[in-house]
């Protein structure tokens, strides 16, 4: 007597199905039991000096119609008609591989190399810019946030950090990258597409002081890799 081909096919299919289920369980068990914590990071660095993936420029109230997009230093300053602001933008679309719009951004850190610290501890506010600007064209008079000082209000800043030589100031070491410029929420919005990336503007928390107080940072055009502005974005693809 021989078994019919139909019955044999049915039996084989059932056996294969059972085996496949077991293999699937084993695969799942191995993945979970390894306890993996994967992160991916995109680091954008303003190097070489000619790169267009990062643009930076300071605007100076005292030279309101001049552009400083090719300067080797950037400033944030408060003073009587001598305020200075720093604009900087990183092109996140150049991350390789691209950051998926569905990624969860865990940490985004703006890093700038300080080469001149004020003698008093100053608060610097970082604002997400809401209109386009160019490195070669921006001036105090045509900057996206306008010429009024202390605008926008400090309360709308994405983040703040302090800088200056007094003890207790967050960034009190000269010739070092600053800490505390955490821009995670902004970058998450850029990645998700809920906000457009026009970069950030950094200004003194209280512009218009009677004496001029300046913080200085290395700019892209300095061309020194170890001092170049950076944006470090750490994300995960699975929450």
């Amino acid at each position: 007597m021989s078994i019919s081909s139909g019955r044999l096919a049915l039996v084989v299919a059932v056996v294969i199905g059972a085996l496949a289920a077991q293999v699937g369980l084993i695969a799942g068990l191995n993945l979970a039991s390894q306890g993996l914590t994967p992160y991916r990071t995109c680091v954008l660095t303003a190097t070489p000096a000619a790169t267009t993936s990062v643009i930076d420029a300071s605007v100076r109230q005292g030279s309101a119609t001049s552009n400083f997009g090719t300067a080797t230093t950037n400033n944030v300053a408060t003073g009587s008609a001598q305020n200075r602001r720093l604009y900087i933008r990183f092109d996140l679309s150049l991350c390789t591989p691209a950051i998926p719009a569905t990624a969860t951004v865990r940490l985004a850190t703006l890093r700038m190399y300080a080469t001149g610290l004020p003698a008093s501890c100053r608060t610097v506010d970082a604002f997400s810019v809401t209109a386009n600007w160019t490195e070669a064209g921006i001036t105090w008079n045509n900057q996206p946030f306008g010429t009024a000082i202390n605008n926008p209000a400090s309360g709308s800043a994405s983040n703040s950090f302090t800088i200056g030589t007094p003890a207790g100031c967050q960034n009190l070491t000269n010739n070092a990258y600053i800490v505390g410029a955490i821009m995670t929420a902004d970058v998450a919005a850029f990645v998700a597409g809920t906000a457009t990336n026009f970069g950030w503007m950094l200004r003194d928390d209280v512009e218009g002081s009677t004496s001029t107080i300046t913080s200085t940072f290395s700019a892209k055009n300095l061309g020194t890799a170890s001092q170049a502005p950076q944006l470090v974005v750490t994300y995960v693809n699975v929450p």
């Binding site: 993945l31 992160y39 680091v43 865990r106």
Partner: peptide, 28 residues
């Protein structure tokens, strides 16, 4: 293996046992 592996399967897609979900600072 269902009770054990089933839990693992769920974790693999939504809450894989990780030691942290925090943002990790990185400096080159």
């Amino acid at each position: 293996s269902l009770s054990f592996a089933g839990g693992s399967l769920g974790m693999a897609s939504t809450s894989t046992p990780r030691c942290t979900n925090a943002g990790l600072g990185q400096i080159q």
